[in-house]
Amino acid sequence: MLLGPPARVLRDVRWYLREISGTAAYERFCRSHEERHPGTPAPSRRAYERQRTRHREENPQSRCC
């Protein structure tokens, strides 16, 4: 890897924030969509995020104290 340590830390932090917040979820979805249905276009990000929100609506998650 050609990156210096500060750049690497920054990249890792960015990766972590994107993963934990779910920002990266759409890209992962597109990759797996391509694997499962090659050639067909994946739903738009807007549609995907709506789908995800609907799912969250129906599956509430406990938050502890």
Binding site: R18, S21, G22, T23, Y26, R46, Y48, R50
Partner: peptide, 14 residues
């Protein structure tokens, strides 16, 4: 913002 302007951009919105 997340629903209509920039769907899914959670980090930026946060």
């Amino acid at each position: 913002y997340l629903r209509y302007l920039r769907p899914g951009r959670v980090v930026e919105t946060s």
